[in-house]
Design a protein around this nucleic acid. Structure first.
Lengths: 225, 225, 225, 225
DNA sequence: CATGAATGAGATTTCATTCAT
DNA sequence: AATGAATGAAATCTCATTCAT
């Protein structure tokens, strides 16, 4: 019934088979369709917001039948969840690019963070907007927001993971790191969000630079004080 | 129907008041109803988000008939706009509290900003969430968001107004001030938003303090450099 | 939200008020609408069956808007449940007509039963068909059929109540009475159902008579043996 | 559309057999698939009812592709029709078991009928439920129920055929026999249907016995009077 | 023969809005 | 001014059916 269900086919041969079952033609077609839907949905969500979007708009944009949507996703929030996960993966991917550079100073890492976020904001604006909207699912009543919450938590954890080494010998203070992560994430997302009201895209680009310097300095100060 | 009679009743009023006719009983009742609606809507919006909220939910919570809603507001977004304006007024009010203190240093002002935001976040959480949602209506397609956009612009302007005096004799650099305003607003809103994922309320309270110091320092640095 | 919710209005005055709150104009209108829907649904259900019926068909027949349906009932099965209860009430009402006649013999009562069922079949054919369909909801998986089951149980109980006095001094044998009730109900419903295949309406009318005699005799025999 | 193509396939068969070509491998496979579908459908229909059943549910249960269904049956009602025919065949088969016993009395035959129905109810409960549902397709509006109607007519005819010899020398009164058939069928189906509400399976088993005696007596009386 | 992804007609359901009282 | 029953446009969702592989 659900397409994502993995075929357990070659489970019968417990031989060397590592290949994970090569996708059949049909499976490939399905995957393509699924991607068309994801792309269309991302576009629609970032233009209109998740709530205002309709299945019709999505499938129309994907040039697919309405029923096809329901073969692949159970509803609007299902596909939105998938997109948020995807976007967070992209963002975390960028954050990791510099990981494991043993020569990097704390300031280098912080600067890298801001750069990575900025690059993400520039090159995946749709995903940025979606993430920001996802954050908006910030409702006091926690409902079934779990699906949405998890990726963000993962994102904060990534930031923490990279910052922890710089905490020095002192006992790792979890709360302190979390604060830092929130500060970074909050600053970046918040800044871009407000920047979209008051500035032209080019101004945003040039604005981020000087702010970055002082922000890096203050965070660094905070962390090591 | 019988209410119009009251208006006439009012004319018997032997007061001199020529201009600002004091609110009649009817008017007072209407104002009360209007407030019930505003309060109910704020609660519903912050719980479910503006899009997921329904008129039914609002009037039910206000314990009023559905038709009554339309007597006071034209639709959901009308009342939301009113609430956003109200919330921004609250926030700006707090920001202004220290205004016109000629002795205040830049760092004092910045610190006051962060304090004011924090107090607002603590004591008007519903309004904070609503504002954040408003910001989240961050859609690429700018639609009739004007009503929503305006209060935020006003808010940025207030920040700018307070910071401008500290720019020194150099030519007022509008873009620089705007950057600063975005940085402040973005940091605060963003931080609280992410903090809500990763921390307990008490932790948020204690977290903001040390961050504030370094943030103030870095902003101050940035501004005067 | 739900219309059926009783106004608890005069609960404040615990005085003589027995009147049950006289229905307001609005309430009367709502009740009328509700009845229009019930009538339309009964017609549609008996013509097409509950499953094949659509909300559209019902509201169209009732000459009402589609949304109106949902003000009064939560879905098709809700209104069907209400109709089944109503029909069982009618049928039980007929069964009770002779109740409390102390002179009646067992055979009189049994004969009365068959007459009552026949009259019900003749004069409330729609309801008969609906009840029969309800019985057909006979699915092995007992789901939320409770709503449907209950009225039928009530019906069997009514039959049992009337037969119990004739059990004589011997210990009341619950199973025996239940058997009898099922036999009566099954015979009547089943007979009419099959009769609809093989006979013209007039033939059914004349057929029931001789069968009734022998059936009454045999049931009476069974009960007292 | 239908499998009639198979006939040609058979021609590859190098046997001389001109008439009754033995089933080829392909035919056997097809027959097996068809049976899997019939079994699955029977289970689903009796659990959910014919209307609530979906092709998906059936093919899933049969562990077959959805397209396969359409190779064998034209739609849900097609396969339901086939199942009803099958079930009636089973039931009629049981009815015939005692046929042609020249020594049997009318009461013997009637008793045999009730036994046969009871055995069918016990051992083919799914089919019983399906038949009962079929009977429930009792809608005032006679539609294309023909396919469904026919097997039931056949069933009544079988009953009539067995009873006719006992009508004595008097002119065969068709209506009288039909009445009888309806009485038998209605009683049995109706009784079991209601019994399913009010009794445990074991009680049903023991209940049918004493009822049978009096019912046989009364029917016999009616028939010969 | 078998498959299951894709389809879209049609059913269900929600909810903003009107309007008579 | 307040009400809430009625409405229907628009959204969601289901499922029988087709068709390329």
């Amino acid at each position: 019934m659900d397409i994502e269900v993995q075929k357990r086919t070659n489970s019968t041969d417990n031989q060397v088979s590592v290949e994970e079952t090569p996708p059949s033609r049909t499976e490939k077609r399905a995957a393509k369709t699924r991607n068309k839907l994801l792309n269309a949905a991302l576009a629609v969500f970032s233009e209109l917001g998740v709530d205002a979007a309709t299945i019709d708009l999505i499938t129309e944009r994907a040039d697919l039948g309405k029923g096809t949507f329901y073969r692949h996703f159970s509803d609007k929030y299902d596909i939105a969840g998938e997109l948020v996960e995807q976007a967070i993966d992209h963002l975390v991917g960028r954050l990791r690019e510099m990981e494991d550079d043993p020569m990097a100073s704390l300031e280098d890492v912080l600067e890298h963070f801001l750069n990575a976020h900025y690059a993400f904001f520039r090159h995946h604006q749709d995903e940025f907007v979606l993430l920001f909207q996802g954050r908006l699912l910030l409702k006091l009543e926690r409902q079934s927001t779990e699906r949405m919450e998890a990726p963000f938590a993962q994102y904060l954890e990534e930031i923490e993971a990279q910052l922890t080494p710089y905490l020095g010998e002192r006992k790792v203070d979890l709360v302190r790191v979390r604060r830092l992560a929130c500060a970074v994430a909050g600053f970046v997302f918040g800044f871009f969000s407000f920047a979209m009201i008051g500035m032209e895209p080019e101004d945003i680009a040039t604005s981020i630079k000087p702010l970055r310097q002082s922000f890096v300095k203050s965070l660094s100060l905070f962390l090591t004080q």
